[in-house]
Amino acid sequence: MEMKDLEFRGINRKHLGMYFEELGATLVTDTFPYTYKAEEWSGQILAEEEIAFTSVFKVNSVQIRFIANNENELEELIKNYRYKTTRIGG
């Protein structure tokens, strides 16, 4: 089993869970750690916290764990997940 933890900031926790579902996983638990399982991989939303850069500017920080059978599957999962979290500024 291969595993990697990443942090995502400024994206709603529910949206991050929805991205796992869009990639083919099913929600298994509905409390922390939120666990999503697919046939070849799984993902977990481990924690969420608010980070304050100033007294006014605050963003959320979500810790996510990706788990796959091998390194290639893990890299493909993370690539596809990051594609869903891409935000284009304007």
Score class of each variant (00 low, 15 high):
Gln44Met: 12
Tyr36Val: 04
Asn80Thr: 05
Thr85Ala: 14
Ala52Trp: 10
Thr31Arg: 09
Thr29Tyr: 05
Leu74Phe: 01
Phe53Cys: 01
Glu22Phe: 09
Glu39Val: 09
Asn69Asp: 12
Val62Phe: 03
Ile64Ser: 03
Leu27Phe: 02
Thr26Leu: 06
Ala68Leu: 03
Tyr81Asn: 01
Thr35His: 13
Glu76Phe: 06
Ser55Glu: 15
Val28Tyr: 02
Leu46Gln: 08
Gly89Ser: 15
Glu73Phe: 09
Thr35Trp: 07
Gly24Trp: 00
Ile64Glu: 06
Tyr36Gly: 08
Thr54Glu: 06
Glu49Ile: 04
Glu76Ile: 14
Thr86Leu: 13
Lys37Val: 04
Arg65Val: 05
Val62Lys: 01
Glu76Arg: 11
Ser42Pro: 03
Glu49Thr: 11
Ile51Val: 13
Arg87Gly: 12
Lys58Met: 11
Thr26Arg: 10
Ile67Leu: 08
Asn70Trp: 07
Phe66Ala: 00
Glu76Thr: 15
Glu40Thr: 15
Phe53Val: 12
Ala47Thr: 07
Phe32Ser: 03
Thr29Lys: 09
Ile51Ser: 10
Ile45Gly: 04
Asn72Lys: 12
Ser61Tyr: 04
Tyr34Ala: 00
Tyr19His: 10
Lys37Pro: 04
Tyr83Val: 12
Gly24Ile: 09
Glu50Phe: 12
Gln44Glu: 15
Arg87Tyr: 14
Ala68Ile: 05
Asn69Phe: 12
Tyr19Ser: 09
Tyr34Gly: 00
Glu39Lys: 11
Ala52Glu: 10
Glu40Phe: 13
Lys79Met: 06
Tyr81Gly: 00
Asn70Ala: 04
Ile45Trp: 00
Thr85Met: 09
Arg82Gln: 15
Ala25Thr: 04
Asn72Met: 11
Asn60Pro: 11
Lys84Asp: 03
Phe20Val: 03
Asn80Gly: 01
Glu49Met: 07
Leu74Asp: 01
Asn60Trp: 10
Glu75Arg: 15
Tyr34Gln: 02
Ala47Lys: 09
Tyr34Ser: 01
Asn69Leu: 12
Phe32Leu: 11
Ala68Cys: 07
Val59Ser: 10
Val56Thr: 13
Tyr36Thr: 06
Ser42Ala: 08
Leu77Ile: 00
Glu75Pro: 08
Phe53Tyr: 15
Leu74Ser: 03
Ala47Pro: 05
Leu77Tyr: 01
Thr31Ala: 08
Glu73Lys: 14
